[in-house]
Amino acid sequence: MNDISGDDNEPIGLFDYNAYTPLGNLYNGNNRLNAFHINNFYTKETPVTIEVQDSYDGSVNLIVIGDEKTPIIINSGFSVLTDNKYKLTNREQSADTNKYQVANLIEQLSLIRNSYAANGSEIKLTNIELSSVKTGGQLKGGNYTFYLKFGDDDYNQTDIIAESRIVSVFNGTDCIPSTISGTLADERTDKMVELEIVGLNHVYSKLYIYYTREYSDVQGYRMTEAGVFVEPFEMTTGDSQKV
């Protein structure tokens, strides 16, 4: 491959079919990209199956499955254009997810992200705990249940991995029972909810919070609505995080 034009973010190049050039998307302890070789994961004697999958930005994913190894997924880092040309694709999220680091290849490439960290230690179960219900918000009244999904830098999400207990939001305060009253339909309160996520899995970088709300309509019928916070929360360091 030879760069011929384009801007600094996504240069365009010309394929050289007379020479073999491996993927150049691996940082090897420095700030320069190096060739990515499959022997970073497998020996030459290991039989592997490689499947090609289109990705959202015109590049392709290589899904590599080998004996007794966790399947891995490698993004090519470029898309194919006409006239034997290619374009390098940069993913400008919180991390450039098609550029890889030798130090954490397992976390970046593992297709199956389970309950074990890269060093083999077991990750704690994740829980959603209620930190507080306090004034200063505009939540609709009702009984809320919150759900958590983890996400990576490409905004891929896990299945639901944690569920909170029921959190009741109403007018008044339980410190003064005489002030407590329920709400109807979409009536808002002056309340906000603070949750604590305990047992963060730092294979991921984002927290997606979903919820269901049970409430009474104006006729007294029990109703349920569901939703999600529009923007995910960026995961912080440490074992727990308040949201």
Rank of each mutant, 00 (worst) to 15 (best):
L125K: 15
V167P: 03
G182W: 01
T145N: 12
D153T: 12
N143R: 04
G182P: 02
S181A: 10
D190T: 03
G137E: 00
N171H: 15
K124H: 14
K140N: 14
G172M: 04
C175A: 12
D174T: 09
K140L: 08
S168L: 05
A162V: 06
E122I: 09
K140M: 11
L125Y: 14
V169P: 02
Q138A: 12
Q157L: 11
D186G: 02
G137F: 02
S178Q: 14
A162T: 06
T189V: 01
T189L: 00
G172I: 01
R165F: 05
P177D: 11
G151D: 00
V133I: 04
G172C: 08
G141H: 00
Q157K: 13
T135L: 02
D186E: 08
E163V: 10
I128C: 05
L184T: 13
D153R: 12
G172W: 04
Y147A: 08
R165N: 10
T179S: 13
F170W: 06
I176M: 11
I160S: 05
S132H: 03
S178L: 10
L148Q: 06
D153S: 13
Y155T: 10
I128M: 07
F170C: 01
S121E: 15
C175R: 15
G182H: 00
L139D: 02
N156H: 14
E129C: 11
G137K: 01
I180G: 09
L148I: 07
I180D: 09
I160N: 10
N143W: 00
I161G: 02
I161Q: 04
V133L: 00
Y155D: 15
N127S: 15
F146V: 05
